[in-house]
Nucleic acid binder design. Structure first.
Lengths: 195, 195
DNA sequence: GTCTATATGACGATAGAC
DNA sequence: GTCTATCGTCATATAGAC
């Protein structure tokens, strides 16, 4: 069979990451072999090692990049002045961002246990930073008397679980648009915090 | 079932299922080998095949048993008369039941993609039955005018995601008792549905 | 029912050709 | 950068002894 040759680093690198994201989300990290990943990209298995030192690094890099992008996107998002406006901004931001990256979101909470300890700690720290953003909003609203949240830590975890859950059932072209979903969830979030 | 000299079926069978539940939850179905499962039980790998025809059946049986027990437990739970009382009963039941079976709950959400298609459909049908229980409560409350839930289907999914999320962070002996958690979440659920 | 031993194949990762 | 080929290990599952 004829050999292929030539350099394709500029296109193959992103293709490896995109294929890994898709396959890890669909089948799980442990169930995806380097051979099947290579087949998805259209190269032989050995060629993947020009782009990652090993399989574990590939998983970690995907999760790290996702969390970095999440934090950066929230840092740049318009947020409003008062706690109520900030909570609405966070709600709509979280749903919109996560729906745009369903595969990465799925992996970020399904494959944590497949990270080596040091990698796990790094991702957990980034997740904690993101949760702290929501908790600060809830705490500010509580301090100002506009929210009624008896336990801001629990409320943070409860709301993020509720909002992230959208990615498990939302399907493009279904009954509701993303904006419809954002509106309905914002209604529930606002009521849940007593605003 | 006749006992054989030297047999331990009565204790080994449950031990296999318990070990599989624990290991699948901690490491993931694909990452657990029959060898490591056997080691956890204290037998050789070949002996496991006296209790399951294959690894896939082991996973399916665990998930099926969990869903059956969930539905049976809810069917027998005290529920109250009006929608508000029923919603409170559901909230506290769901948290309590899931915290008692954190491993099974974890697997039920994480390993669905590792089920063969027919097995997947069976588990999804059971999950749908459980969700329908909550949706019926929300619909009844909406019809009677005691809830303000614009979309009962979305509210069902949102509330279950929120409540199930407890299993991802709750640790025995932490700051809050199970009953504390139930109270705090019920407060949020009640507000979220506008009651 | 559990053991030892094994059939059969896939796994992650590397070496060297081009 | 990608190929072919391969190393050493591990996987699921089965066979036959006791």
């Amino acid at each position: 069979m004829a050999r292929k040759s030539g350099s394709h680093a500029e296109i193959t690198g992103p293709r490896v990451r995109a294929a890994a994201l898709r396959l890890f989300a669909r089948q799980g990290y442990a169930a995806v072999s380097m051979r099947s990943l290579a087949a998805e990209v259209g190269v032989q298995a050995g060629a993947l090692y020009a782009y990652t030192p090993d399989k574990q690094s590939l998983l970690f890099d995907l999760l790290k990049a996702h969390m970095d992008e999440l934090l950066a996107a929230w840092a740049e998002a318009p947020k409003g002045a008062d706690p109520l406006a900030r909570l609405e901004a966070f709600t709509r931001f979280h749903i919109r961002f996560n729906l745009e990256r369903a595969d990465a979101v799925f992996i970020s909470y399904m494959e944590l246990r497949n990270l080596e300890p040091a990698n796990f700690r790094a991702i957990e720290a980034l997740r904690g930073s993101y949760e702290a953003e929501l908790e600060a909003i809830l705490q500010a609203g509580q301090d100002e008397g506009v929210f009624a949240v008896p336990d801001t830590k629990l409320a943070t975890l409860a709301l993020i679980a509720m909002l992230t859950g959208v990615t498990t059932w939302y399907r493009e072209g279904g009954r509701l648009s993303r904006s419809d979903v954002g509106q309905i969830y914002w209604d529930m979030v606002r009521k849940a915090v007593g605003a």
